[in-house]
């Protein structure tokens, strides 16, 4: 996949996140965004997801530009699977119903076909026993796997994940990362924001370092982690890998 940013600017109120950011990234299956908190990783992911439009500039995915108007962006989002840090499942719906909603309401699948598809994803993720439970009855790791199941069930062109393991304990983190590694291995393209450096190193085929609203470095994981070229990236890695 090819991702191009052409002069992208974005500000929230008085805070300028990106100013005239241009970059071109090519990756096979998994692009991982790393960098310090507040550096713009999540905002970049939301821009790519079409959840927020840039103030100026354009984003191109495989050569075609993202639309600007909300109606077209909505159509664009229906082909993406988006996963958030806080799971964002709907609390009034069961795990199964959470997965069914985009399939029936957005993609217009019949209920029986949608149910079949949703159950097969839940089954594959080892969640079939929890299909009829509401989110409050599930653990954090299960919630995040249901959220990923919801994103995967629509058979997205691209999976976008914003720090999917940040709210989980180590065991649950492993649970979710195993699932992501599996998705990557079957060749589903994904873009992931994470603080799990070990996972980034093993799973990514491209690592991008985002800090202070700039894309400072983008390289294959082996060379990025062994010899980062940008001083800020070197500093960041020294700090997070010290312990």
């Amino acid at each position: 996949m090819k991702l191009e940013l052409r002069g992208v600017s974005k500000r929230f109120g008085r805070q300028q996140i990106f100013e005239n950011l241009s970059a071109s990234l090519e990756f096979q299956h998994a692009l991982v965004l790393v960098g310090p908190s507040g550096g713009g990783k999540s905002t970049l992911l939301r821009l790519l997801a079409g959840l927020i439009p840039p103030d100026s500039g354009t984003i191109h995915l495989d050569g075609s530009p993202l639309p600007n108007d909300e109606a077209a962006l909505r159509a664009y989002r229906t082909h993406l699977g988006i996963v958030f840090q806080a799971y964002n499942l709907f609390p009034h719906l069961s795990a199964l119903e959470n997965i069914l909603l985009p399939l029936t309401a957005v993609l217009g699948l019949s209920r029986s076909i949608a149910t079949e598809r949703a159950m097969s994803v839940l089954d594959r993720f080892g969640l079939a026993d929890h299909a009829h439970k509401r989110p409050h009855a599930l653990s954090g790791g299960q919630l995040q796997r249901v959220a990923i199941a919801r994103a995967v069930a629509i058979q997205p062109k691209l999976l976008l994940l914003d720090e999917p393991t940040s709210a989980l304990d180590p065991e649950m983190t492993a649970e979710v990362l195993d699932l992501l590694a599996e998705l990557r291995d079957e060749g589903r393209p994904l873009i992931l924001v994470t603080h799990e450096m070990g996972f980034a190193r093993h799973t990514a085929d491209m690592v991008a370092f985002v800090s202070g609203g700039k894309l400072l470095e983008a390289r294959a994981p082996e060379s990025f982690f062994s010899s980062p070229s940008h001083p800020e990236a070197r500093q960041f890695l020294e700090r997070v890998l010290r312990y």
Partner: peptide, 16 residues
């Protein structure tokens, strides 16, 4: 607001 963002993310319209 996280619910609303989630609704947008899966492509629901305003009415939906």
């Amino acid at each position: 607001s996280s619910q609303l963002e989630s609704a947008r993310a899966i492509g629901l319209s305003r009415v939906q």
